[in-house]
Design a binder for these strands. Structure first.
Lengths: 107, 107
DNA sequence: TTTTATAATCGTAATATTGCAATATTACGA
DNA sequence: TCGTAATATTGCAATATTACGATTATAAAA
């Protein structure tokens, strides 16, 4: 065991969990926040900004990118990152739908 | 290593990550969804509803409860769960603030 | 008091995640 | 082509998470 049993859940539930997981690590939140604050793209100022090794940042970037949240363009030898706002907006809507539809009359 | 370095990040960033983590597992999303659908409280129908063992469900419930998202009342031998909508709403607002404030002009 | 139903906890195995050093790759400029 | 800067990948150690059986607590009912 130790494996998440995704197959027992609906797609909707799995989608929410997978989406939330991207934001479930402070380094990834910080990376997205930093890119956002820089307005447009940057390179490995992220490594300087956040106190983690280049390897670790690169891994987190890969997780964010796999989720479809990054657009990258090579600008010289550096890579220019920016947020794919379309996917980002989809994520917002998905999570918000979950929050909005959840109700509970307490006992 | 293997430990998330929370201390290098701001409280805001850590709060978002901790909040998102609650929803980062499909079982927890499914539990919340089920409680919500039942309107008010239930007991261990959750175990029957979701295909996980009682011990596992209990663990996930503990994670949700630790986040402040559950209210429980003992009703007979069974325990009655419901969602703490105040905390839930706070979570919604926190995550939404992050989504709303994030911008990016792509390269 | 004993039984029974319900839920929490313990112990443990399997797997996932985090983080980093070392190394590879990629792309540019000299 | 070589050297160099920027990123990605690999391999590994430490830790966290997930899941479950077994056990333990708890409270109502018999």
């Amino acid at each position: 065991m130790g494996v998440t049993k995704r197959y027992i859940h609906s797609d909707y539930v799995n989608d929410i969990a997978i989406t939330a997981k991207v934001f479930a690590h402070p380094a990834r939140v910080a990376i997205l926040k930093y890119i956002s604050e820089q307005g447009s793209c940057i390179c490995n100022d992220i490594v300087d900004e956040i106190g983690l090794s280049q390897a670790t940042i690169s891994q987190h970037l890969a997780v964010i990118a796999d989720a479809g949240l990054l657009k990258g363009t090579f600008k010289g030898k550096a890579k220019c990152y920016c947020i794919n706002m379309e996917t980002f907006e989809n994520f917002r809507v998905l999570l918000n739908s979950f929050f909005i539809t959840t109700k509970s009359k307490c006992c």
